[in-house]
Amino acid sequence: MARAAGLPMAVAGALLLTLVALAAVAGPWLAPAHPDELSLAESLRPPGPGHPFGTDYFGRDVFSRVLYGARVSLAISLSAQLIALVVGVALGAAAGYFGGWVDGAVMRLVDVVMAFPDLLLAIGIAASLGPGVPSVLLALGLVGWPGLCRLVRGEVLALKERDFIDAARAIGAGDLWILRRHVLPNVAAPILIATTLGVGSRILQEASLSFLGLGVQPPAASWGSMVHHGLRWLSRAPWLVIFPGLAIAVAVLGSNLLGDGLRDILDPRLRD
């Protein structure tokens, strides 16, 4: 039953993400105009034949900017999630496997980071490092790892008690070998699910930071910064906010659907 419900969800999510990825990869060929091309004569045109998503105050084509924005948004959120993944899995596996003071130190750090609301922490970090892509990456990575770390630690703790870990030690395997060969492959499924779900949060958080002006700097555009700049024209040109907002929604929905679908397919035990 869980599998039956999971599959269509996963497929729908994968399709939406493919759409977003396609926009990111094929953007330059699909875009009718260069995203930074100014044309003051065509300022604030509503969506129409020449400009499917309309134009902004500087006459830039919003459709082209949304396509290019997919690149920026995806690149930043995926990289940030990758950072969260590497840090979270490494620390979580070490904490669960070695226990003792390693576990204590890592989990107290997790507690501290998790004590802050995600977005506030990200804003704080990004703001203190100054606006720009590197600080956003760092901020989102730092916000993302504790959840994965906790998950991996719990899985590893349970796994450590299994006989095959002792059996591996008895044939002479060292700790790193056991972690790489026997522990990580057995926690791969929950990690995959949590990572996929995390991408959605990262996209939202990146958009939020960019909306606050902490992300990519003009003229480059991410979806969040487009919403930020379009807000001023909300009553006259709502399409400036609607289309990048829709893009964010599609990407987040895709990643959530895929993650939830995978959860149902791979690991019915994890469902809430």
């Binding site: 002792d166 059996a167 060969r181």
Partner: peptide, 25 residues
């Protein structure tokens, strides 16, 4: 080990499990 089901890694094929000690050493 006492419980053969528990002493084998569920994600490791049999040949790989038998090869593993040779690989480690």
């Amino acid at each position: 080990f006492q419980d053969p089901a528990g002493a084998l890694d569920p994600r490791q094929r049999v040949a790989s499990a038998v090869e593993e000690p040779l690989l480690i050493h």
